[in-house]
Simulated assay, not measured.
Amino acid sequence: MDTVTAPAAHARTRTRPGAGARRRYLLCPPEHFAVEYAINPWMDPGLPVDRAVALRQWRGLAAVLRSLGHRVDLLAPEPGLPDMVFTANGATVVAGRVLVANFRHRQRAGESAAHRRWFAAARFRQVRTAAEVNEGEGDLLVAGRRILAASGFRTTTAAHREAQRVLGLPVVSLELTDPRYYHLDTALAVLDDTRVMYYPDAFAPAARRELRRLYPDAILATAPDAAAFGLNAVSDGRHVVLPADARGLAGQLRAAGFVPVPVQFAELRKAGGGPKCCVLELRSQ
């Protein structure tokens, strides 16, 4: 079975109708998913990929999000763009303002135009493609009234300043130093407006100090849970959808009052992605 939807968690949700605000997400089916190049340490073009399994695991993720009461919109996949399934990398959306990604690697550059067309068709009025290298919610995570932004591998510090101007929220810059955690959303997850979880060893010393200052009660992931992409998680403020292999992190979340919802995601992880990579939040407010 490819998806575990945590029935007990769903039962608790029914008794607490205010838990987990309804969100709107953009996903893209992995119909053209493949590992044809290596632009992060997880990618090995010589390792076989089972697209049918990837599609089944992605459908399980979409079903879980809908079962939690969230709206799922779809971006049509395009041939020649095998990483389009990772919609979170394509843009950042705050209060209806859209900053479309400007990808570092040429292999993904075509995804920017695909995202921009979708936002235009969906009648988002303020849509701008980044001038600076910027990989969307991969590196720009909205955390309440601030944006946590990464540099070091994909998104530049100049892009942080651009994001602050365009999206209207103050940006906190954090440097990543471990190439396995090349995007912020592989090393840190926003749980709600005031709480995060992260893997300290993925960050430069100054970034670790800043995270301790901002989030003294953060959940700290172990190395095995980080390597299982446990931090590449989708939270609605109560339910946290994360890879099933991150069992220790699921226990920490439960102890902190969240409801972990584990999903199987091993096939898409072959390209260096997890549940959050596949989910772009569309914030209208």
Rank of each mutant, 00 (worst) to 15 (best):
V93T: 01
G138E: 03
G144K: 14
R24I: 01
A250M: 01
L220P: 05
D2F: 09
V72R: 00
P260N: 12
V142G: 05
T5V: 15
H239K: 12
S235E: 06
P82D: 06
R24T: 13
L74Y: 11
Y215A: 02
A76L: 08
G46I: 04
R12D: 11
G60P: 11
L268S: 05
P7L: 12
A120D: 12
T92Q: 06
A76V: 09
L68W: 01
K270P: 01
F119N: 01
W58N: 07
G230L: 02
R208S: 13
D139R: 05
S235C: 07
K270T: 06
S235T: 07
L282R: 07
F33A: 06
V94D: 04
T92W: 02
R146Y: 10
E111S: 05
V127I: 12
D44R: 11
S284C: 12
G144Y: 14
A113M: 12
F103N: 08
A158P: 01
R116S: 07
R22F: 06
P262Y: 00
A158R: 06
P82S: 05
R22C: 09
E135Y: 02
D192R: 05
L174H: 10
L191P: 00
A233G: 11
V263H: 09
Y182I: 06
T13H: 14
T15P: 05
R180K: 15
R108E: 02
R24S: 09
T186L: 11
K270E: 06
V93P: 00
P7A: 02
A122P: 04
R125M: 00
L99C: 11
H239A: 13
E210I: 03
R14Q: 13
F33Y: 13
A88F: 08
Q252F: 01
A91Q: 03
A159R: 02
R116D: 10
A122Q: 13
D50I: 03
L174T: 00
D192F: 03
I219D: 01
R71C: 08
A34F: 04
A266V: 14
V72N: 09
A62M: 12
P275C: 09
